[in-house]
Design a protein around this nucleic acid. Structure first.
Lengths: 139, 139
DNA sequence: CATATCTGTAACAAGTATAGTTACAATCGT
DNA sequence: ACGATTGTAACTATACTTGTTACAGATATG
């Protein structure tokens, strides 16, 4: 299954942003994402550890944004739920072969370069950008 | 399993590049990558369809680069074996919810933007770049 | 033309990741 | 004390990647 946790995280945070400073229940978010509340809470757990949201247990509990949408970059969200690399490195190249012995390091550097590039791009967007676009599309 | 087809493709092509204009057998490549020849031939099939390599069946057959390493960009290789997106889109957002109805298009645009960015970055490298780096590391 | 050598590809097994689901302990307002 | 909600473990279903075996088709060589 293709990993859609980043998409889900953005969707979830957009719902929370619309909830302003009210606690939003995972069950409510689940209806917009069209999935099970536990799936929402799992992602919310990662976003909480990253300091992007804060949750309250108990009656009238729920989750809200820890900061204003303008201060939450998509890069931060991506890293919070980050699940795997853009491309995987070679598994077990033959180190007796001159190429096999060196290709891993070369690809690893390339991988870091790509991920830095993606990070820079994602940093250009914030949750506020997403909110604007969603509202634009609505109009 | 994390997808390492791009890494494998680059590794394979590096081996082919070292074979100059000789046909290289999948069994030989498999020893450098440390896997089964069929796995190599599978990737080689995709690279062949993309016009990056040419193969010959039969005795003394094998595969060679279709072009000079300087003329093969990593972007081309990435697209040839392209296996999935940087991040998956939402599966089935609730279209009765204003957010659910619009988030998919917004994320899809974002996804295209990211993939364009990655493509631009990969276009800065060619197979020749990789060859240089592998040889540098060897020295 | 017969043979040995390769590729191309189908079919299947094994390992692993994601998502969905159920269940329940812990927490907290009333 | 009670009801509402999160946090989290455990399990299932699905699907993707890799590795492996098997074999048909193509081709150079003697």
């Amino acid at each position: 299954m293709a990993n859609s946790q980043f998409s889900m995280a953005v969707h979830i945070l957009t719902v929370l942003a619309c909830g302003k400073d009210e606690n939003v229940k995972s069950e409510y978010v689940a209806r917009s994402v069209n999935t099970n509340p536990v799936v929402i809470r799992r992602v919310l757990g990662q976003l909480g550890q990253a300091g992007i949201v804060t949750s309250q247990t108990g009656a009238f509990g729920g989750t809200r944004l820890a900061r204003a949408p303008e201060d939450i970059s998509l890069c931060e969200i991506y890293k919070a739920v980050s699940c795997g690399e853009i491309f995987g490195l070679p598994r077990s190249p033959n180190r007796d072969c001159p190429i096999g012995a060196n290709i891993e390091a070369v690809l690893c550097n390339l991988q870091k370069d790509i991920e830095r590039t993606v990070g820079d791009k994602l940093r250009q967007y914030t949750l506020a950008t997403i909110l604007e676009n969603v509202n634009l599309a609505k109009a």
